[in-house]
Amino acid sequence: MYFYYLSPSCKNKLLCLFLHSKYIVTMKHDLFIELLEDGSKVSLYSPRFEGEEYTEFEKFLLQYKDKYPKDVAQIVYRLDIIKRDGAEDRHFRYEGKKRDRVMALPSHLETACLRLYLLNIQSKVLILGNGGIKETTTYQEDEHLNRCVNTLQKIDIQLKRLEQQQVLTVCGTKLLGPLSFVIDINE
C-alpha cells in the first residue's frame, strides 16, 4: 500500500512515501555550482545549496581545518599542484561507482584518513564536494561520507544529461551553461 503526503508547511518539497512497514524520505534541494578558483589547467567549483552560506567544500574546510590542520593544508596544497600540473585521473582515487566521475583526494601523509570527495570533469574542472574522516572500509558504511558521495553522484547525473544535450560544455577550464540544479537527497 502506498500513501503520499505533501506537507504545505514545509519549505522544501517533502514527499513521504509509505511502503508497507518501510518509509523513505527524500528531499529536493536547489543548488548552484559555484566557481571557487580558476586556473590555466584546472578550475575549482563547488556546489552551494540554496539558503546556505557556504559551498560544500567551504563547509569541509571549516569543519576540519582546526582539528586536522595539517591534513587540510595538505589537501589544499595538493589542489594547488593539480591546478598547476593538471588533473589526471591517477592523481585521485576512484571512490564512486564505475559509471560516475566521483573521486577522492586523501590527505598526503594520511595522518587522519581525511578524504575530500570531488567530481573530475574532463580533467579540466573539479567540482569539490564535502568529505570527512574515513574510518570504515567503504564509504557506504559511513552515513556522512555516503551522503557526500551520493550528493556528488546526483550532481554528476544532472551534469552528464546536460553535457549529452550539449547544453553544458567545458570551455578551457570553465563550465559554460546552466549551473543550477535540483537534486533529491535521501534524508
Binding site: 566557481l35 571557487l36 578558483e37 580558476d38 586556473g39 575549482l44 567551504e58 574546510l61 571549516l62 581545518k65 590542520p69 595539517k70 587540510v72 593544508a73 595538505q74 589544499v76 596544497y77 595538493r78 589542489l79 594547488d80 599542484i81 600540473d85 598526503h108
Partner: peptide
C-alpha cells in the same frame, strides 16, 4: 585569477618543508 578566501587562509599555514615534501612525492 579568482581565488577563494578560505583556501588563501589555509595556504598561509603551509610550511616550506611540507610543500617541498609534497612536491618531491609528486615528482
Amino acid at each position: 585569477m579568482k581565488t577563494n578566501k578560505f583556501l588563501d587562509e589555509i595556504r598561509q599555514t603551509m610550511t616550506p618543508e611540507m610543500k617541498r615534501q609534497m612536491e618531491m612525492s609528486v615528482k
